[in-house]
Write a protein that binds this DNA or RNA. Structure first.
Lengths: 137, 137
DNA sequence: AGATAATAGTTACCTAGGTAACTATAATAG
DNA sequence: CTATTATAGTTACCTAGGTAACTATTATCT
C-alpha cells in the first residue's frame, strides 16, 4: 500500500476545494475559514469561541483572527458570557440577510466539485473519512 | 447528500495528517512541505522548480520559499539549466545521507495514521480520491 | 533582425492554521 | 479566605500556500 500517495492526493483534494470555495466567496469579500464559522453559527446557533474551536477542530488563535475579521465586516458580534472569560459569538441581522446569497454560492461551488463524482462514491468517501477521523481522535 | 460534511471531514483529515507529519519531522528541523520536495527529488531524480511545482500542484512562490530553506539547510542545490531561466534542483550528499532517517520517521508517522484503517479501506479511499482528482483537473 | 509574447523564478502581501507566552477570570485546594 | 491551578481569549511569530506585479530569458511573429 502506497501511503505517500494516499496522503498526497488527500492533501491536494483539500487544497483544491479550499481554493475553489475561496473563489466562490470572493464576490462577497469572504474566505473559507469565515464561511466555516458563519455556517456553524447559522446551523447550531450562538456559540462561544471555545465551542467554535472545538466544533471546527481549530486552535484558538486562528479562530480569534477569523472572528475579528467577521466583526470588522459587521457579520458577527462578540457578547460577554455569564462567565466573563468567554465571548459568545452571534450572527448579526446583516449576516442573516446576506446568508442565503452566500449559501447559494457555496452550494454551487460544491455542486461543481461533486459533479462528476457519482452519488455512491460520495457516500462511500464520506463513510470512510468519518470512520477514519473517528479512529484518529 | 451532505456535501458540507464531506468537504469538512476531508479538510480536517488533511490538517490532522500535516500536523502529525510535522511532528514526526521536527527532530530533523524539517517541515511537511520540505519533505514533499525531498521525497519527489529522491524518487524522480533532479527536477527544475517548475517541474516540482507541476508535480506537487503548488504555485511557484511557495516552492521558491521551500527550496530556499532547503538550500540554507544544505539539503539541496540550485543549478542553472541549459535554459538560463530555469534552476534545476539537486539533492546534496548530505541529504542523501540523512534521507533514510527521515524516511523512517515519515513511514512510522504514516503507519500510525493508517493503523486502524483496514487495508481494504485504504485502497478504496485511494481509488476514490484518485478518480475524483482526475475528474477535477 | 527586431518587436512582441510566453515562460521561470522572485518579491511582496494576503489568508489559514500551528505553538508559545501572556492576561484575565473562574474553580479548587489548603 | 487565600493561594494555586485551570480555562478563555489574545498577541507574537512560525510554516503553507494563494495572487499580483516584477525581472530575466527564451520563443515567436512579422
Amino acid at each position: 500500500m502506497n501511503s505517500h500517495e494516499l496522503f498526497h492526493t488527500l492533501h491536494q483534494l483539500s487544497r483544491h476545494f479550499t481554493n475553489h470555495l475561496n473563489e466562490a466567496l470572493k464576490p462577497f469579500g469572504l474566505y473559507s475559514a469565515q464561511w466555516a464559522v458563519l455556517f456553524v453559527l447559522k446551523t447550531k446557533g450562538t456559540l462561544s469561541q471555545k465551542e467554535l474551536c472545538d466544533y471546527l477542530f481549530v486552535e484558538a488563535p486562528p479562530m480569534t483572527r477569523t472572528i475579528q475579521r467577521l466583526v470588522k465586516q459587521g457579520y458577527v458580534r462578540q457578547v460577554p458570557g455569564k462567565d466573563k472569560r468567554e465571548k459568545r459569538i452571534i450572527l448579526t441581522e446583516e449576516a442573516l440577510l446576506q446568508y442565503p446569497k452566500w449559501e447559494r454560492a457555496v452550494n454551487e461551488a460544491n455542486r461543481y466539485l461533486l459533479e462528476h463524482l457519482p452519488e455512491t462514491s460520495q457516500k462511500e468517501l464520506l463513510t470512510l473519512q468519518k470512520s477514519w477521523l473517528q479512529k484518529l481522535l
